[in-house]
Design a protein around this nucleic acid. Structure first.
Lengths: 229, 229
DNA sequence: CGAACCCTTGACTCCGCTCAACCACGGTGG
DNA sequence: CCACCGTGGTTGAGCGGAGTCAAGGGTTCG
């Protein structure tokens, strides 16, 4: 693994405070690989062999059942995913695939569990990471169960706007069908919902969005840290 | 706190392996209280002061937004809830209220965090508990997003059946309106869905359920450990 | 240039919600 | 003892949101 990559991973909250020897132990058996788009990194149901750390690109976490599919989250650098399955040595509950060309570090689950049992600082960091992930899914579930599709879309646009430094215009971060699936609707419906939001100052051209009336959107989505962080 | 209660709490996976002195430290500042039904134990948004351990009864975890409400889980003895908020010292994302007369032990969050930083075995247990909770919410979200209401209901009945030792008849564990909310539908709709399932061998009398054709239900719900544990 | 693929649009269907009435049950108080 | 009322559950009618199916346009890429 390149030392620049190591630095980057090392600087993550998850690894920042652990003993240097333990970090070396973790990364010794690790791979760091580049993947083209649309590669399946993880398929749900398989045993959790590796903790994944995305260092570049974007990865979709999704789930399948009975021929249907829904995206649960989109992970961006630099962060980890499917830590819970690794720690519990349990089968993955979600699949993962690259959305764009991406680089991912793979840390063997056995090493992870071994170091985790010996390094208190690392254990603490894992707890924080897990607690954060947990709260993320809770927010997602609340979002799905409490808001209707128009409200979810408005909330999503607000969140994206803030991710881009509250700039009034910005680009959608990935394909609309992914956004639709993440928001729990069909692509057709997302299209219609976007059109419907034109009355609220939202204009769309391809992937670029313009929010003319931020407050109006807020009145629809009523964003708050209990659901939108 | 009564010593029998202490024993019970101590035997939980979360506390089983920690140092005796640390366990004493945790429970020293703890309360153990009885509550009547319909008491709000936690209201979302408040800072997370206490880890809750339910030792008797049943507690509903739910969330509100804009006048709507949805139940996220029902917690039964003996287990803990809202660990994530406590560990992160963050506001609760969910509210909690007793469904029936219940006993709950309250462990101060400051003590929890303090011991957690010093006791590696405890930190490990917390990680396992958190990872388990995380996977629980992921399952819930998948359930909501991938199955329609009839399928969710069938899966719920199957799960309840197995909780009762696969007995063919059993009682619904709590009010139907709670079940409806948990399954992401209205009470009216639950009623209709139950009636609809009569063709599949489900008969309902008040709170008692009879499943004449388990396999038929399975064909609808397609249960699996990736969504129904 | 053709072939995918994504997005959009329209028409239609249907699942699930709303609103309203009604019933069963249990508790209360006259 | 019974009238009254509140609550939870059921049922029905009507509506609307969201999915499905099908077609067409725009882009990208081989």
């Amino acid at each position: 693994m390149r030392s620049a990559d190591l630095e980057e991973i090392r600087s993550l909250p998850l690894f920042r405070d652990m003993a240097p020897a333990h970090f070396a132990e973790l990364t010794r058996g690790a791979y760091h690989q580049s993947f083209p788009p649309q590669v399946d990194l993880i398929v749900e149901g398989r045993p959790a062999d590796f903790l994944h750390v995305i260092t570049d690109g974007a990865v979709e976490l999704f789930a399948r059942w009975n021929g249907r599919e829904t995206t649960m989250a989109v992970v961006r650098p630099v962060s980890t995913f499917i830590l819970a399955a690794c720690i519990n040595d349990a089968p993955y509950l979600m699949s993962a695939r690259t959305l764009v060309p991406s680089r991912v570090a793979l840390i063997p689950g056995t090493d992870l569990r071994s170091v985790f049992a010996r390094d208190p600082a690392f254990a603490q960091a894992i707890v924080r990471e897990l607690a954060g992930s947990y709260r993320g899914v809770v927010r997602h579930a609340k979002n799905i169960k409490l808001r209707n599709s128009k409200e979810r879309l408005a909330a999503f646009l607000i969140a994206e706007c803030e991710r881009n430094g509250r700039s009034r215009t910005f680009a959608l971060p990935y394909e609309k069908r992914i956004i639709a699936s993440y928001l729990g609707m069909t692509p057709e419906n997302l299209s219609r919902a976007l059109k419907q939001l034109r009355e609220d100052g939202v204009t769309i051209d391809g992937a670029t969005v313009d929010l003319a009336d931020f407050d109006r959107l807020c009145a629809i989505a009523l964003p708050g840290r209990l659901m939108d962080r």
